[in-house]
Write a protein that binds this DNA or RNA. Structure first.
Length: 204
DNA sequence: TTAATGATATACT
DNA sequence: GTATATCATTAAG
């Protein structure tokens, strides 16, 4: 079984964000194996992106963003939810890709229990939901995705078209709020939000 | 449409 | 040290 390696993650962040679409995120959790196909991502790129955590001062929380590409960055938001990011680029370049939605594959029963719903479309369609379903918490923060319980398998899907849209929930950003740095598989029913009218569509 | 919910950042004493 | 505002969201109304 193949796992995405360091070379994949240490490339340009926008490229990694697009290339992660169609790949399979796997967590060998203590309760069982769960996985899903990544269908929606967002890029957060360093000090100049005022929507990124790394636009503010380096801190304990954001420290994983400064690690070499291929590590995880998990943080808690709104008191009860977690968001899972994949760190990209080289060490000391605080860039990452937020994974926003998955199409559930393995361990759907476990996901349903964790999420408290049998509706497959509500298992992983959103950054908080996906972390809950996958069993991702602060314990999975700063893991090496090339060598741990949490990893990504290469894309085996044929993807005809992609969408680039505005990122969600970052209206506080003045400069970068309208950047089309949210990527999804076009027409996927598993995304957290459908691309709006300002989106652009492309193929690779 | 809006309340929930707590860690974190920032601005104070 | 202490206070307060702010969230890369979700589910309920």
């Amino acid at each position: 079984m193949k796992i995405l390696d360091r070379e994949f993650y240490t490339r340009d962040t926008l490229t990694v964000a697009k290339d992660l679409l169609g790949c399979k995120l796997v967590h060998r959790s203590t309760d069982g194996i769960v996985s899903g196909i990544i269908v929606e991502t967002e890029a957060y790129i360093g000090p100049d992106d005022d929507a990124a955590h790394s636009a503010r001062k380096r801190s304990i929380r954001t420290e994983p963003m400064y690690m070499n590409g291929g590590h995880s960055y998990v943080y808690q938001i709104y008191g009860k939810y977690y968001c899972f990011n994949i760190v990209t680029a080289k060490e000391d370049m605080p860039e990452a890709v937020l994974v926003r939605a998955l199409r559930p594959i393995d361990g759907k029963d476990l996901m349903s229990i964790r999420r408290g719903t049998g509706n497959e479309h509500l298992l992983c369609s959103g950054p908080g939901r996906l972390c809950s379903a996958m069993g991702i918490t602060k314990k999975q923060n700063a893991l090496d995705l090339t060598n741990s319980e949490l990893f990504v398998e290469p894309c085996k899907e044929i993807i005809k078209e992609y969408a680039a849209s505005k990122r969600i929930g970052i209206d506080y950003a003045v400069k970068c709020r309208d950047y089309l740095w949210r990527f999804s598989i076009k027409d996927s029913v598993w995304v957290s939000k459908k691309p709006d009218k300002d989106s652009i569509f492309f193929s690779k």
